[in-house]
Design a binder for these strands. Structure first.
Length: 221
DNA sequence: ACCCAGGGTCATA
DNA sequence: TATGACCATGGG
């Protein structure tokens, strides 16, 4: 089932080439900025940072939080996210940078990331998968919503329970997890609203379209 | 004028 | 442990 949906999505949408960023540090910055935020707005914030020469750890730490907040304003929650970026970057530099983290084992690094105020499970796992190529499945709101509407999940499972479901049902392959999460986001970006209006969403539980074909039908469009 | 977005923290019970 | 409030911009 999990593999079959992946194959359908991949055949329809192709490689997503995630994470969309030029450097490892830019992935981390994007992972924080995209928290509950449309990627379009994150792109603007990152463009500001790039223009100001702020896409590297030292520069982020050297800037007062208030000025950093102004640069990332388009991404929303800018005061909180400015602090979160500095919290994460401070720990990164304290541990010796990306190349030092690359040598950490996955569980230790995950715990370390979760110690950072502003880094929760999804943000930590996004960094583990897309910076360090660790085989952890990233669970986001789309994942929960789509698989609940497909009848695979009930909807109230914990983050870890959902992640474990994917870990158990798929080969533990970081390349597969990378592509799968990207495809889920691609699918979710199209259709899967929290409160779809009747008939609007092919994955909605009340949709007259049969469940077995909904994903395939949608993926063809 | 709503609803929504690639979450997370904190106060409260 | 489990809810709810809060954070905030920009597009549909």
């Amino acid at each position: 089932m999990l593999r079959q949906l992946f194959d359908t999505l991949h055949a329809a949408f192709g490689d997503q080439h995630w994470w969309p960023a030029d450097t490892d540090y830019e992935v981390m910055v994007g992972a924080v900025l995209t928290q509950n935020t449309a990627w379009r707005n994150v792109e603007r914030a990152i463009a500001n940072l790039r223009g100001a020469g702020l896409l590297e750890p030292g520069a982020i730490m050297a800037l007062p939080a208030g000025q950093l907040a102004e640069q990332i304003r388009p991404a929303g929650y800018f005061n909180i996210k400015a602090r979160r970026l500095q919290n994460l970057t401070a720990v990164l530099l304290d541990d010796g940078g990306v190349e030092a983290w690359r040598r950490w084992d996955t569980d230790a690094l995950r715990r370390r990331l979760l110690q950072v105020n502003g880094v929760g499970e999804e943000t930590a796992d996004s960094i583990l998968l897309y910076v360090f190529q660790r085989p952890v499945f990233v669970v986001d709101a789309y994942t929960r919503r789509i698989f609940t509407r497909l009848g695979v999940l009930v909807g109230d499972e914990s983050y870890g329970a959902i992640a474990d479901h994917f870990h158990a049902g798929l080969p533990r392959d970081s390349g597969l997890f990378n592509e799968y999460h990207a495809l889920i986001v691609r699918l979710g970006n199209g259709i899967c609203r929290p409160r779809p209006r009747c008939g609007e969403c092919p994955l909605h539980g009340d949709c007259p379209v049969g469940r077995a074909s909904v994903v395939g039908d949608f993926a063809k469009q």
